[in-house]
């Protein structure tokens, strides 16, 4: 065993990139849940985003276009969820699970002729002298644009929820949809927009896997990342900055585990792999006493009775 082979700078740098897919998806889902909707279809929207982005990137030759396509793909799929839960008032848990099933199948059909194709590369962002700063440079300033967009997204969501009127309305809808309705807010419209935003974010998260992390297309390639993103929102107790922290923690445990193995440390991989979920449960329990709990109307169906 030789722990000195683990380079903390590279470990942290890898972490920033590894955390980006769950960060994007979880940020989107956070907005959805703050609006009072529980969409369990994150995995489905991610994988559809992964293939939609892949197809667009390959055909246009531009990874940036790919991410736009991925956002569109995820949002279009989430439109189905909007229809089911907001128009047809169907149960959100079942609709979300259905969305994942449908998304996995649909993505496989869409991707049939893209197996083994190499997508165009998205290079690292050139941040000039910043990336030459010792220690901080490689950790913070040597990544592709999407890493920064992910961070920016967290900041925007945080600021929007906290300081803007739109954010206030969104939270009001999520806390108590009847009261929000009585105040004259369009509950369904607001929720629909939140769900679409969540779909777009999940789509981009998926495309980050198929275009940057891996990069290739294979069926089922998101391999459960969407479910981790769901756990992350809870872990973060519906607060944007904690999502960031959580994404690094969740991604970090995998990174650390791989690093320790490489260094020859015998670790029980399965028990380490279950730890983020156990930590999430502990966080949930401690939060229950705290005032920062789940949005009041989370998962409940809204229908204006008058």
């Amino acid at each position: 065993m030789d722990l000195s082979v683990i380079n903390p700078i590279l470990l942290l740098a890898a972490l920033m990139s590894a955390a980006t897919p769950i960060l994007l998806a979880a940020t989107g889902e956070l907005v959805v849940e703050r609006a009072g909707v529980l969409n369990l279809g994150v995995e489905g929207m991610m994988i559809v985003g992964a293939i939609a982005g892949f197809i667009v990137a390959v055909n246009t030759g531009s990874p940036a276009m790919g991410f736009i396509g991925a956002a569109a793909g995820g949002a279009i799929l989430s439109l189905l969820f909007v229809f089911l839960t907001q128009v047809a008032l169907a149960n959100q848990v079942a609709s979300g699970l259905g969305l994942t099933l449908f998304g996995l199948g649909l993505s496989a059909l869409m991707g049939q002729s893209y197996v083994g194709v190499k997508p165009p590369r998205m290079g690292d962002l050139d941040l000039g002298p910043l990336s030459d700063i010792p220690v901080l440079g490689p950790i913070l300033f040597s990544h592709d644009a999407m890493v920064y967009i992910g961070l920016l997204m967290v900041a925007c969501v945080w600021a929007t929820l906290k300081y803007t009127r739109a954010g206030l309305v969104l939270r009001a809808v999520g806390e108590n949809h009847d009261a929000a309705h009585a105040l004259g807010y369009k509950v369904k419209r607001i929720r629909a927009l939140a769900i679409l935003f969540g779909g777009a974010c999940a789509g981009m998260g998926g495309a980050y896997i198929s275009l940057i992390r891996v990069p290739q297309w294979t069926e089922g390639m998101t391999a459960g990342v969407g479910w981790i993103a769901l756990a992350l929102v809870v872990f973060a107790s519906w607060k944007p900055w904690r999502v960031l922290l959580g994404a690094y923690l969740f991604g970090g445990i995998t990174q650390l585990q791989l690093n320790l193995q490489g260094a020859g440390v015998a670790i029980p991989v399965e028990y380490l792999a279950m730890s983020p979920y156990i930590v999430t449960i502990i966080v949930l329990v401690t939060l229950s006493a705290d005032k920062s709990r789940a949005p009041g109307s989370l998962g409940r169906i809204f229908h204006a009775s008058h």
């Binding site: 079942a94 609709s95 259905g98 099933l101 449908f102 649909l106 229908h303």
Partner: peptide
């Protein structure tokens, strides 16, 4: 038929069942 087509088919079945249930209560 590819397995994916069957998955999509099952997804559709579920969506229709969920969506049409609205007629029971409304």
């Amino acid at each position: 038929l590819p397995a994916a087509a069957i998955q999509v088919f099952q997804g559709m079945l579920l969506f229709f069942l969920l969506a049409l249930d609205v007629l029971t209560n409304y």
